[in-house]
Amino acid sequence: MHLPTDLSSYVRVLKLASTPSWEEFSQIAKIAGAGILLVGLLGFLIFALMSFVPGGP
Rank of each mutant, 00 (worst) to 15 (best):
M1P: 02
H2K: 12
H2I: 09
H2P: 03
L3R: 14
L3D: 11
L3S: 10
P4E: 07
P4C: 08
T5H: 11
D6H: 11
L7Q: 09
L7F: 12
S8G: 00
S8M: 13
S9F: 06
Y10Q: 14
V11Q: 14
V11R: 13
R12V: 01
R12N: 06
V13H: 09
V13E: 14
L16S: 07
S18K: 15
S18D: 10
P20K: 01
S21W: 01
S21A: 07
W22I: 13
W22D: 15
W22S: 14
E23R: 03
E24C: 01
E24S: 07
S26R: 13
S26L: 12
S26W: 08
I28N: 07
K30Q: 15
I31T: 15
A32E: 08
G33K: 04
G35K: 11
I36H: 04
I36W: 06
L37S: 07
L38T: 13
V39Q: 06
V39Y: 09
V39T: 14
G40T: 05
L41W: 05
G43S: 08
F44E: 04
F44H: 03
F44Q: 05
L45R: 04
L45P: 00
L45H: 02
L45I: 13
I46F: 12
F47R: 12
A48S: 09
A48E: 06
S51T: 10
S51N: 09
S51P: 00
V53N: 01
P54K: 02
G56H: 00
G56F: 00
P57W: 04
P57V: 01
